[in-house]
């Protein structure tokens, strides 16, 4: 057990489990945890990509996954909204609970799940449609046709993503005319428009310049008031800046999971220390 970081006093008493740590899983109450992973193994055909991962993702905080390329952090992220279902031959073991509900359970519809667990991708991928239609895409899927209701959602989502001021005069122009950073914020707005509980971000800033990156990082601080955010990043400084909790992955194993301060200052595992101090990776 670790103490919570100062920024969020009293909230996360989160359990840190390591794959090789036989200690029992957390005693954290459901209210404080959004996603609970227990003994998650993941396979691409015969190749195992994740080994016995156990994590509890705290509610309304930013959780970062770091690690070198190919360590399985993106794979884990995609397990959380079942985007890996689409890959032929992919197989998952163990359980992932979202607010206590097994997301791989037989009664769960993957499309419903993805409405609750939004995602922002590494490469900004707005649809080749106007900005407005991009943001309204999710709500329209849910059957919202009312123009005024859509207008309100679009404005609110763009506002939340910090893009409203820049985009309000060109809502009906193609989204592809935006700059890279704006496109990524549009993707965030698009994800927010379906009102998810969790937002998964897969290296959202890796293709952006420092200024655009800073804008998105700022955004995370406001978004986490409403949302649970899981972010995968290559960039350790970014993880240190934005996240409340950090998990370090290596070769498909969760080496260490703790509050960010601990990971970056006094990691328990030697490998974590080597990685965060830049000795490898």
């Amino acid at each position: 057990m670790h103490t919570s970081p100062d920024s969020t006093p009293g909230l996360p008493r989160l359990a840190v489990t390591r794959s090789d740590d036989p200690s029992p899983a957390s005693t954290v109450k459901d209210l404080e945890t959004t996603i609970t992973l227990s003994d998650v193994n993941f396979f691409y055909g015969d190749a195992q990509a994740l080994f016995n991962v156990n994590i509890e993702v705290p509610r309304k905080q930013v959780t970062a996954f770091i690690g070198p390329s190919g360590c399985g952090k993106s794979t884990l992220l995609r397990c959380l909204n079942r985007l890996n279902d689409l890959i032929e031959g992919a197989r998952i073991e163990g359980t992932i609970l979202l607010d206590g509900m097994d997301i791989y359970g037989p009664q769960v519809d993957a499309t419903d799940l993805r409405r609750r667990v939004g995602m922002v991708f590494q490469k900004s991928n707005p649809f080749p449609k106007p900005i407005y239609d991009n943001v309204a895409y999710g709500p329209r899927l849910q059957g919202i046709r009312n123009r005024a209701a859509l207008d309100a959602i679009v404005e609110e989502s763009l506002n939340d993503a910090g893009l409203w001021e820049e985009a309000k005069d060109r809502l009906h122009q193609s989204a592809l005319g935006l700059s890279g950073g704006q496109q990524q914020r549009l993707c965030i707005a698009r994800a927010l428009a379906v009102k998810p509980d969790v937002l998964l971000m897969d290296e959202p800033c890796s293709a952006l310049d420092p200024i655009a990156t800073a804008k998105i990082e700022e955004l995370l601080f406001t978004l986490k008031k409403e949302l649970t955010i899981v972010i995968v990043t290559h960039n350790m400084q970014q993880a240190a800046r934005v996240s409340d909790h950090t998990g370090f992955f290596l070769m498909g194993e969760l080496v260490e999971f703790s509050d960010t301060k601990t990971i970056f200052t006094t990691p328990r595992d030697r490998r974590t220390e080597d990685y965060v101090t830049g000795r490898f990776g």
Binding site: F121, F127, C187, R190
Partner: peptide, 22 residues
Amino acid sequence: PRDYREASLGLGATKFETIWRV
């Protein structure tokens, strides 16, 4: 691009909706 499909599916679209709209 695979990105378009994933973005659409990630927003809760079914496969058919993704094909039809994107």
